[in-house]
Design a protein around this nucleic acid. Structure first.
Lengths: 173, 173
DNA sequence: CGACTGACTTAAGTCAGCACAAGTCAGCTA
DNA sequence: TAGCTGACTTGTGCTGACTTAAGTCAGTCG
């Protein structure tokens, strides 16, 4: 094939005890845990809708384009997992309703969703996708970046993968 | 980041034609497209392994903790989708082998994986997860951030969701 | 030559995620 | 009182993601 000219993208470097990759398995991996929580398409879509401000059962099902049984099951799972809360509320003259809202934990997924959306815009569409996020104050488009605590913008190839030392004393973090 | 008050986290604001949420459906959503490509747990795990430097079939299956048939099927899909390439290579005295490597498109998923891992570290583990990324040059831990093109660090609540105007003339992109 | 290894494929069966259609049920409205 | 609406649940059946176990096949080693 034609693999000669496009160089492979640089990857993170494994350091310390992680360097011999064949000596460890990533079974406690936070990524795997995260995937277990939001593994399904329907879960992703429901969380997207929650970010778009949807709160009601029927709206979730219709806007995410999923069936009601799946919507019910998934919402329950997401509530159980602590990503959404179910709140009762009542408008005057109406009976009680339920509103589903993101918790801090659920809202913490925003960068991940934004990154995935950005990747889809970049690689899966012709013209950059149907919607985008802008900073309200200055109107500029928003992107997901990797930055170190010193403020440097980084790429995967600039990174080391390390096993943090949490034995006893913690420097600052 | 000590953000544990009871108030609901702030969400992006819908603007322009997107403001009446009941009037549009996000069916061209890049997030949905992205999920269709990497929907399965096994695909996620294989890409994670690729970032950790794994290149060979058996290693992928073993390290991702998936069976060989699934590994084969998923690798083929990821190659077909353009996230991985399959390269033949030959070490002296050995027969030809195949190596799977991330393409630029596959490598572009790094921020999304990093964000998911960070979320898992934060919300799904006691002590912050088993591995972390550091900037090689300065040793500082790396985080995923949302920044606008003007360089401001932003939160979901600072954002507007807009439909970009791509009708006819394109400013610069 | 036969054994072994790496990279798969085939077979058979389980289980989860999904859709569609229909039913339930509480409470408000006419 | 009857009907409507929102928020579900139940039943049925499909497809696809996954497993284990076993088979294939080319190439290298002893």
């Amino acid at each position: 094939m034609t693999e000669t000219e496009n160089a492979a993208p640089a990857m993170p470097r494994l350091t310390g005890v992680l360097a011999p990759r064949e000596r460890w398995q990533a079974n406690a991996c936070s990524l795997a845990k995260a995937i277990d929580v939001v593994s399904t398409r329907s879960a992703f879509l429901l969380i997207r809708e929650a970010f778009y401000g949807t709160t009601r059962f029927d709206d979730f099902a219709e806007r995410a384009g999923i069936s009601e049984p799946v919507c019910a099951a998934r919402l329950r799972e997401l509530v159980d997992a602590g990503l959404l809360t179910r709140e009762e509320y009542r408008e005057p003259g109406q009976r009680a309703r339920r509103a589903y809202r993101l918790t801090d934990k659920g809202a913490g997924l925003f960068p991940a969703l934004a990154a995935l959306m950005e990747w889809g815009d970049r690689w899966l569409t012709e013209d950059g996708g149907p919607v985008e996020f802008r900073h309200r104050d200055c109107g500029e488009p928003v992107e997901v970046e990797l930055r170190c605590a010193a403020g440097h913008r980084t790429e995967p190839g600039d990174l080391d993968l390390v096993r943090p030392d949490r034995s006893g004393y913690h420097p600052a973090r």
